[in-house]
Computed example of a mutant assay.
Amino acid sequence: MGVSMATAKEWVERWELQQQRYAVDREERFTVIADVVEHVTAGRPRPLLLDLGCGPGSLAARLAARVPDAEIVAVDMDPLLLELGRTHHSGAARYVDAVIGDNGWTEALELDRPLDAAVSTTALHYLPEPTLLDTYRRLAALLRSGGVLVNGDHFPQDATRCSELTAHVGRRRAERAGSHAHEDWQSWWSTAAQDPELADLFTERAQRLSVRGGGSAGDDLSTARHAGLLRQAGFHHVTSVWQFGESHVLVAVKD
Rank of each mutant, 00 (worst) to 15 (best):
E110W: 06
V96I: 15
Y95C: 03
A92T: 10
T87A: 02
L80F: 01
A108E: 15
D112W: 03
D97M: 11
L109A: 05
H88P: 00
T106P: 04
A92S: 14
E110L: 13
L111S: 09
R86S: 02
T106H: 10
V96H: 05
E107L: 11
Y95A: 02
G91N: 08
G104T: 13
H89V: 13
E110S: 15
E107K: 11
W105C: 13
S90D: 09
I100M: 06
R94V: 08
D76K: 05
T87V: 09
L84N: 00
L82V: 03
L81Y: 00
M77K: 09
L82M: 02
R113V: 14
D78Y: 02
G101M: 12
W105H: 10
N103Q: 10
A92G: 09
P79N: 05
S90C: 03
R113P: 08
N103P: 05
A98Y: 08
R113I: 13
L80G: 03
D97R: 15
N103F: 07
S90H: 06
G101C: 13
V99L: 14
H88I: 09
D112M: 06
R86D: 06
R113G: 12
M77I: 14
W105E: 14
G91D: 13
A92Y: 04
H88L: 07
D78N: 08
P79C: 07
V99Q: 11
L109K: 06
D112F: 04
V96P: 03
E83F: 03
P79F: 04
E107R: 14
A98I: 15
L81F: 01
A93N: 06
D97A: 12
V96L: 11
T106Q: 15
D76G: 04
L81V: 01
G101A: 12
T106M: 15
R113D: 12
T87W: 02
D76N: 03
L84M: 01
L82E: 02
L81I: 03
D78T: 11
G85D: 00
P79V: 09
M77C: 08
L80N: 00
V99S: 12
A93R: 02
P114N: 06
D102Y: 07
E107P: 06
R86V: 05
L81N: 01
G101N: 10
T87F: 01
T87H: 00
D76Y: 01
A108S: 15
T106F: 12
H88G: 03
E107M: 10
A98Q: 12
R86M: 10
G91A: 12
D78S: 05
P79D: 03
D97F: 14
E83G: 02
W105F: 11
G104E: 12
L80V: 12
G104I: 14
L84C: 00
P79S: 06
L111C: 09
T106V: 15
E107D: 15
G85C: 04
D78L: 09
W105G: 13
H89I: 14
T87M: 04
G104D: 11
L84A: 00
V96S: 08
L81M: 07
